[in-house]
Design a protein around this nucleic acid. Structure first.
Length: 469
DNA sequence: TGAAATGTTGGGGCG
DNA sequence: ACGCCCCAACATTTC
């Protein structure tokens, strides 16, 4: 007799899904629902790459549910209103969901809980997307960690979570009278232009990507992860972790059986960074609005709109930066080493606020996630928890030469530099004739000079004085 | 999950 | 043979 709604948000899979499994086990009729939230769709931080990936993930999810005899209900509107409405229509005795720790999601879910309570429908949320939630990993002084290494130690000392079994077949179908929107066939129906689909979406694709990486990527991860031209140097699972087409428990449960000690350990460390920043955002939500260290909100960023535009479009004259940005714009994805390089460049060479870069990344990235993106940007800018100290400034030339020694990544994305020899591909301005002919811009700033200005800017903010150039 | 500036050392050219 | 200087090469410090 019992009907339970499972509300999907960023857990778009049928296997290893805590709330979904609970809802299926404890109900006769399972009502899986996804709600298009216009507050999210209209956000300037949401771009076509992510909407397209979400849409295709939902299509896959819908098929997966269908193959088990379930039916995904799709609605659009304000979540609290829609859930109350649906709960009444199906006469639900509960609404289940997996917890989301972003400030917007926390506010939304509080509203949902209140609306459902008023309607007499219990609302239950579950831990699912992380090994450790908000205040589960604390220092000896019962405070959230703000330094990564001790956090990772405490995280590792916790028992390994066990994957949740896949849900079984539908016991009793949802009445056909319960209507569902059809999934739009392309993102333009949701107000987003169509973008290239470079990431296979859905649970099955995620499993395949995971398997492929475990077979021929993870063993060499500790060195391969720094080489952007290496296709299997990194897992490329970030969009799947972002939308929950794979769960962290599934990943961790497969690691012990894989050969490749140092690589596995290093990759696991990256997965811990993900939880570290999720935990930082949950415990210090002000990072979404400003610097983790408020004294750095005083920084006087002096870069121009024109420079920002050059950075966005990949026309700064620094090949590794431009290649990375063009790759991001074309594919919605950027290698992590390159994220560090371009974010350092924006903040410390162009002297443009990390928040402008953060917003641009959010709009472009297929894996854009507030916690990870914000954490990464504050790390690069030197304004965050356990951040790179402000004086640690990457040299875009030496970074390029170190991590793209043959220039193959640069040539892939900056065709103007195709004919520049490898020993000059990261500093084409040293071949003025070749540079002139190529149409590639000269560097828009002088790194050594900007580095000094950056140090002065930080010095001014630290001493509480105005100025900074 | 830096880079640049500064300091130190030691080999070799040279008067 | 010896001292002096130059300057890689490496180490340490500073930002």
């Amino acid at each position: 007799m019992k009907t339970i709604i499972h509300w999907f948000r960023r857990d778009l899979r049928v296997s290893d899904n805590t709330a979904l499994h609970e809802a299926w086990e404890r109900s006769e009729t399972l009502v899986p629902v996804f709600i298009w939230d216009d507050a999210i769709l209209r956000s300037p931080d949401v771009g076509p790459a992510r909407v397209a990936f979400l849409l295709r993930s939902l299509e896959a999810l819908s098929k997966n549910l269908e193959s088990l005899g379930h039916r995904l209900i799709v609605r659009r509107g304000e979540p609290a209103e829609q859930l109350v409405l649906l709960a009444r229509q199906v006469v639900a005795s509960g609404v289940f969901t997996n917890r989301d720790y972003e400030p917007y999601a926390v506010r939304r879910d509080r509203k949902v809980a209140e609306a459902l309570y008023a309607a007499g429908v219990p609302f239950e949320s579950f831990k699912d997307s992380v090994v450790a939630e908000g205040r589960e990993v604390l220092t000896g002084a019962k405070q959230p960690y703000t330094v990564f290494t001790p956090y990772s130690k405490a995280w590792r000392s916790r028992p390994m979570p066990v994957p949740i079994p896949r849900i079984g077949a539908a016991k009793r179908p949802i009445p056909t009278a319960i209507e569902s929107l059809s999934l739009p066939s392309d993102p333009s129906d949701l107000g987003h232009v169509v973008s290239q689909d470079l990431f296979p979406a859905g649970e099955h694709a995620a499993q395949q990507a995971l398997k492929a990486f475990l077979v021929d990527g993870v063993a060499g991860y500790d060195t391969g992860r720094n080489i952007p031209s290496l296709p299997s140097g990194t897992s490329r699972l970030s969009p799947h972790l972002r939308f929950g087409t794979v769960n962290i428990r599934t990943i961790l449960s497969k690691l012990p059986s894989v050969a490749g000690g140092a690589g596995v350990r290093t990759w696991e460390t990256e997965l811990i960074w993900r939880e570290f920043y999720i935990q930082i955002l949950a415990n210090f939500p002000h990072v979404a609005e400003g610097c983790f260290r408020p004294e750095y909100d005083r920084l006087e960023w002096s870069g121009t709109d024109e420079q920002f535009q050059a950075w966005c479009t990949g026309h700064t004259g620094f090949p590794i930066v431009d290649a990375a940005m063009r790759c991001l714009n074309a594919t919605g994805w950027m290698h992590n080493r390159l994220r560090m390089i371009v974010s350092m460049f924006l903040t410390k060479d162009l002297l443009i606020s990390w928040q402008r870069g953060e917003r641009y990344f959010m709009r472009q990235l297929v894996d854009g996630d507030l916690a990870a993106n914000n954490g990464g940007w504050q790390w690069s800018a030197g304004t965050g928890t356990d951040a790179a100290p402000y004086f640690r400034i990457f040299n875009p030339v030496s970074q390029g030469e170190k991590f793209d020694p043959a220039g193959s990544f640069v040539r892939q994305w900056v065709p103007e530099l195709r004919d520049v020899p490898a020993d000059r591909v990261h500093r084409p301005w040293e071949n003025p004739l070749l540079l002139g002919r190529s149409g590639y811009p000269a560097p828009i700033v002088d790194h050594a000079h900007q580095r000094e200005r950056c140090l002065a800017m930080f010095k001014a903010a630290r001493s509480g004085m105005a100025g900074g150039s």
